[in-house]
Amino acid sequence: MSLAIEAEGLVKHYGSVVALEGLDMSVPEGTVMGLLGPNGAGKTTSVRIFTTLLKPDKGLARVNGIDVATHAAEVRSVIGLSGQYAAVDENLTGYENLDMVGRLYHLGKNTSRKRSRELLDQFDLDEAADRQVKTYSGGMRRRLDLAAALVARPSVIFLDEPTTGLDPRSRIALWDVIADLVAQGATLLLTTHFLDEADRLADKIAVIDHGRVIALGTADELKSQVGGERLEVTVASPDQIAPAASVLTAIGMGAVTIDEHTRHLTVPVSSEGETLVETLRALDLQAVKVLDLTLRRPTLDDVFMTLTGHAAEEETNQ
């Protein structure tokens, strides 16, 4: 299978701030790659390099085999980009926005007009098509922005945090739209700091931190890398965190993660035996009052925690 997106040793520094530090990546045609990482990990910088907006200091990037640095114009005619914030013109109508993009892709007057109407229909914006975008909701703007990325039927699509700032309902609606796109055979690179989003949409996930890929695989592969299941305990009062932690340390297979604020403790455990019953008994012996106790499969949150030593949502760009 040929590669739609490739990166070899991409390096990008902004002054003393390191954005990318040798990023490698390959995305086969027709697949979805999820770029997962905290803010400042280098996700947006990678997208900006692939979409010709930014030149890397070092390294190679290719889209459909075309070198991004030397043949930027050719790359631009095969890609679609939807950025972190909806880049649509507030004062134009939804239709005018798409038609403008179509004309700038040189689709020709009639094709551009037809394609714009078709997309508005497909993205459930047909009723709002001739209203100015300033009257749109956040979810509608995002859908329009995504539609704008698809006007020229690009074979490679870049979505930079497509659902950031959306309410849960709009997020799920947008996921459906993206899943449809993928079903039509496009190659997609998607950045996100939502683990459930990567899990839901991507064939493969590249976890990036401090400008490099630190893990790569399917969601299941990544989860099995961290091994075992997770036992979660919520205790009734702060003074019970310490005795509960010592119980979990004895039972678990790794370090106990403690959230003081929510009085929530997590520990990886082996999936054999009667873990739940044992834990409950041991906690009872220490007179720990338990509010909640669950055993669950590891999430990508756990993956991130294990791989990087910090939570995915936390800011790391200082």
Partner: peptide, 12 residues
């Protein structure tokens, strides 16, 4: 608003 980014990613 990011519109310049959009323009710069187009083959114009």
């Amino acid at each position: 608003n990011g519109i310049i980014d959009r323009f710069r990613s187009l083959p114009m």
